[in-house]
Amino acid sequence: MAAGSGTRLAAGRPKAFVEVDGHTILERSLRPILLSSTPWQIVVVVPAELVDEAAALVPSRAAGFVSVVAGATTRQGSVAAGLAAVEPGVETVLVHDSARCFTPTAQFELVAETVERLGHGVVPGLPVSDTIKRVDAGGSVTATVDRSELVAMQTPQGFPRRALDEAYAAATEEHTDDAALFALAGHEVTVVPGASEAFKITTPWDLARAEMLAGDGRPRATPLRTGVGIDVHGFDAEQPLRLGTLDWPGEAGLAGHSDGDAVAHALVDALLSAAGLGDIGSRFGTADPRYAGASGEVFLTATRAILDEAGARIVNAAVQVVGNRPRLAARRSAMEEALSILLGAPVSVSATTTDGLGFTGRGEGVTVIATALVEVAAA
């Protein structure tokens, strides 16, 4: 929906055609939809005199999937015009306000998926944080509203296409959003979590906020980086087994300069790799006597400190143990809990065998593969 006049914005032209850091609000509102992996058709509803200008703003790679139609004098009439341009095979419709041009792709996908799962209307919303008062015509407070029951609506609002068409065809009065019209027609509407960045550009102050987010002064997105670590150790019957920081009584240990904890070592490599901070060999070399016989906890704790100092935050990690033994199933949860506490982030553990193939299949040792997701400081 981009047919509004933008009177409160007072920018001299319809809101969707006002620029934010060199790109129109309309262009910015299309980006998150174009990034979605979900198949889509986009219908852009604009003032009649700006149909050609709007069409020129559509990226060339998406032109075949985007229709631009003229709106009406009311929002409800404009939505109806947009619905009329939706392809016959489309079963789920999202109605989105272009003024919420920073709405993340995930919000579109969440609404669409929930509509298809529940079969009725879905709207994103945020809890109301301000205290709300009810006042009379003279401005006197008459009551304090329980804000736990209040939600601030956002877009896109999603609906089963046929039910929305019928609700619009039966509508006899104007509504401030599509969910209200849909509910009045007797249909259920469910609220899903919204996003703070999906705010609506309505006033000059909102536009200034948008400029800050989009321009050089914006808080930059924090990059996410992945890392992979692999560690291989042979069994040493003379050593106790320590794996995933747990002791395994009765099991042959793993040979190594330290305690041979291949799970901990693979995690260290994955974390350092993701953060761009080297690897276990460069940080904890075998020539350093401090790490002779050291436990996996020592390496993991030290690695977390290295990442903290560099301004990197561990988001999560995953470990897969490849080998015939030890059997992890009974202690998987305990290992996940111990590792998660040490790293301050969720760690998942899985195990597999090689069906008798290779040194792990012959029971000569284990291989551990770890992956990590790390949030690094923005440049």
Results as ranks from 00 to 15, higher is better:
residue 9 L to A: 05
residue 9 L to M: 04
residue 17 F to G: 02
residue 20 V to M: 13
residue 23 H to I: 03
residue 23 H to L: 15
residue 27 E to M: 11
residue 27 E to Q: 15
residue 32 P to Y: 01
residue 41 Q to F: 12
residue 41 Q to H: 15
residue 43 V to I: 14
residue 45 V to W: 14
residue 46 V to S: 10
residue 46 V to N: 08
residue 46 V to A: 06
residue 52 D to K: 10
residue 56 A to I: 07
residue 59 P to W: 03
residue 69 V to F: 10
residue 77 G to Y: 08
residue 79 V to A: 13
residue 83 L to G: 05
residue 92 T to Q: 12
residue 98 S to P: 01
residue 101 C to G: 05
residue 114 T to R: 15
residue 116 E to N: 09
residue 120 H to Q: 04
residue 123 V to C: 05
residue 127 P to Y: 04
residue 130 D to K: 14
residue 137 A to L: 13
residue 142 T to M: 13
residue 143 A to V: 07
residue 143 A to W: 00
residue 153 M to G: 04
residue 156 P to L: 05
residue 161 R to N: 12
residue 165 D to G: 11
residue 182 F to C: 03
residue 190 T to M: 04
residue 191 V to G: 07
residue 198 A to H: 08
residue 199 F to A: 07
residue 202 T to S: 13
residue 202 T to I: 13
residue 203 T to N: 03
residue 205 W to A: 14
residue 207 L to F: 10
residue 209 R to K: 15
residue 213 L to R: 15
residue 213 L to F: 15
residue 215 G to T: 14
residue 216 D to K: 12
residue 218 R to G: 15
residue 218 R to Y: 12
residue 226 T to C: 14
residue 227 G to L: 13
residue 238 E to G: 10
residue 245 T to A: 01
residue 248 W to A: 00
residue 251 E to M: 00
residue 253 G to Y: 02
residue 260 G to P: 09
residue 261 D to A: 00
residue 263 V to F: 01
residue 266 A to P: 00
residue 267 L to I: 01
residue 271 L to N: 08
residue 271 L to E: 06
residue 274 A to F: 13
residue 275 A to I: 03
residue 276 G to F: 08
residue 278 G to M: 11
residue 280 I to S: 14
residue 280 I to K: 08
residue 283 R to E: 12
residue 284 F to N: 01
residue 284 F to K: 02
residue 285 G to W: 06
residue 288 D to G: 04
residue 288 D to M: 04
residue 290 R to F: 02
residue 293 G to K: 06
residue 299 F to Y: 06
residue 308 D to R: 11
residue 309 E to M: 07
residue 314 I to M: 02
residue 315 V to W: 10
residue 315 V to G: 05
residue 321 V to E: 00
residue 321 V to A: 00
residue 325 R to E: 04
residue 326 P to V: 09
residue 331 R to F: 11
residue 336 E to Q: 12
residue 346 P to V: 10
residue 352 T to I: 09
residue 355 D to R: 11
residue 356 G to I: 00
residue 363 G to L: 03
residue 365 G to Y: 08
residue 366 V to C: 10
residue 367 T to V: 15
residue 373 L to D: 07
residue 375 E to T: 06
residue 375 E to C: 04
residue 379 A to N: 11
